[in-house]
Each structure stands twice: as structure tokens, then as C-alpha cells.
Amino acid sequence: MTTRIKELRAKDNLTQIELAQKVGVRRETIVFLEKGKYNPSLKLAYDISKVFNMKIEEVFIME
């Protein structure tokens, strides 16, 4: 699974810490998500997509 978190974060001028604060996780979790080294729970995926006003499948892409 790949994610567009880094790209969307840059577009919205959000830092990793700011995104982590918005979705209630640590910065390291965002780092691992961006590197594709962690598959989030459905709730976290939903929360992140909500921050970017997008659907889950637009942020997290299954290969």
C-alpha cells in the first residue's frame, strides 16, 4: 500500500507534527505511514483522509 500523505501535506502546508496533532498520533507514526512501513487502522485512515477532505481510497492506494 502506498500513501499520498506526504504530497497532500505539502500541498496543505502541514508539518508532520501538525498532522499528528490533528489525528492524535505521534510524529513517528506519520513518518512510518509516509514511508509505507505501517498500515493504519481504519479509524486512523479515516481521520487522515478527513484532514485532507478526501476519500480514504484517494489517500491510501492499494497496489
Binding site: A20, G24, T29
Partner: peptide, 14 residues
């Protein structure tokens, strides 16, 4: 440190 930055130290990954 995490709490000071408004982050959750016990999140799902940890």
C-alpha cells in the same frame, strides 16, 4: 515531550 507538543504518546502504532 510528546504530550508537551500536543501529541498522543500511546497511539495505535506504539
Amino acid at each position: 515531550k510528546d504530550a508537551k507538543s500536543g501529541l498522543n504518546p500511546e497511539d495505535e502504532l506504539s
